[in-house]
Each structure stands twice: as C-alpha cells, then as structure tokens.
Simulated assay, not measured.
Amino acid sequence: MFMSRKRWQPGGVLPVLYGSATTYMADCRLLHIRAMPFIPLLIGCVAVVLGVVGYVAIIFCSPMPFNVMDRDNSGVVSLIEAIDSLDVGQRVVTGKESCTEYFWLKDGLPAYEVCAEKL
C-alpha cells in the first residue's frame, strides 16, 4: 500500500486501515462494547473448570479408597468429604507385619487398614 510522506493531520487520511480517526475510534468503542459481556462469562467458565479439575485431583491424590472417602455412604463423594480425605495420617500397626493403618487426623480414629500380602 502506498503511503505518502505527508504527516498525518487530524481529520486526514490514516495510511493503514481506516478512512479517518473518527471511524477508527468508533470501531474501537464498538469492539470494546461487544467484548464486555463475554469477560464475566469467560471468568466463570475458567472458575468452573478449575474447580472440577481440583475436585478430581483431590479424589485421585487421596490415599483413601472411594468407599472410605464417602463417609455418609451416599454413593457420591462431596467436596467436603474429598477435602476431609486429605486430612489423614498413616501409622504402622503393632502386632501385624507389613500392615499400615490410615487414620483421621482430627480425632485419631482409624479409617482403614492395608496389609501387604506375602508371596
């Protein structure tokens, strides 16, 4: 595209894309107005995706099996149950060889026990 050596003057021709500065400004405002409703929608979608990914990561990273995490036996692990499943400790069971007991840190009660089988 041919560009003249004249300096651009207000009200003159913009050399690149637009016929005048007012057309350029109007297009910028129109683009800004059209993009505004999508920003909260985008933020909401990102928050939901991060929440679901976090929930799934908590369930898979927990040392507890699914049926122990579901403390009320509803068949669904709620978000509170999933977060509680991260609050467990483990200790070696005295009197049993190669057994580990997982217990709830808040009250010390046993959650479940895993024993390695001898071959």
Rank of each mutant, 00 (worst) to 15 (best):
K106R: 10
L119I: 08
M64L: 13
F66K: 09
P37N: 07
V46K: 14
Y112S: 06
K106H: 14
S98G: 06
E101L: 07
G12C: 04
L79G: 10
I80M: 10
N67D: 15
V48T: 05
Y18L: 06
A82T: 01
V46C: 10
T23P: 05
H32N: 11
L41Q: 15
I59Q: 12
D72Q: 02
P63F: 00
I33Q: 13
I59Y: 04
A21T: 07
G75W: 01
T100C: 05
V88A: 03
C61G: 14
S85R: 01
L42H: 09
R34E: 15
T22C: 07
W104E: 10
M36I: 15
D70S: 01
T100E: 07
I43T: 10
R91M: 05
C115I: 02
G44M: 05
R71M: 07
P40D: 00
T23G: 13
V68F: 00
F2P: 00
A116C: 05
D107M: 08
W8N: 06
G75Q: 02
P110D: 06
L30P: 01
I33V: 11
V16Y: 11
P15Q: 15
L14Y: 00
I80P: 04
F38R: 12
F2L: 06
V53F: 05
M36P: 01
C99R: 01
M64P: 00
G89S: 02
Y55M: 03
S62N: 05
F66N: 05
I83Q: 10
V68W: 00
N73S: 06
L41P: 03
Y112I: 04
G75L: 03
L42C: 11
P110F: 09
E117P: 09
H32Y: 08
R5T: 14
A21F: 09
M1R: 15
P110R: 06
L86N: 11
F38E: 12
K118E: 11
F60P: 00
V76Q: 12
L105C: 04
L14M: 03
C45Y: 13
D70L: 00
G95E: 10
V92Q: 09
G95A: 09
Y18D: 12
P10N: 11
L42A: 14
Y102D: 00
P37Y: 05
K118Q: 08
S20L: 02
Y112W: 14
Y55D: 02
L14E: 03
G89P: 01
W8V: 13
Y55N: 04
V53S: 11
A26S: 12
V16A: 13
L41M: 14
K106E: 09
T94E: 10
V48H: 04
T23Y: 06
S78E: 01
L31H: 11
G89D: 01
S20G: 05
T94K: 08
F38D: 12
Y18W: 14
F38T: 09
T23Q: 14
I43F: 07
L105Q: 05
Y55H: 08
V77E: 00
R34P: 03
S4Q: 10
S62T: 09
L119M: 08
Q9I: 12
Q90P: 00
A35R: 13
K96L: 14
S74T: 08
E97C: 06
M1I: 07
T23S: 13
R34M: 14
C45H: 12
M64S: 03
P110N: 07
D107R: 06
R29H: 14
Y102F: 15
Y24K: 14
R71Y: 00
L14S: 02
I80W: 09
Y112H: 15
C99E: 02
F2A: 08
S85I: 02
R91N: 04
V13M: 11
R71L: 05
G12Y: 03
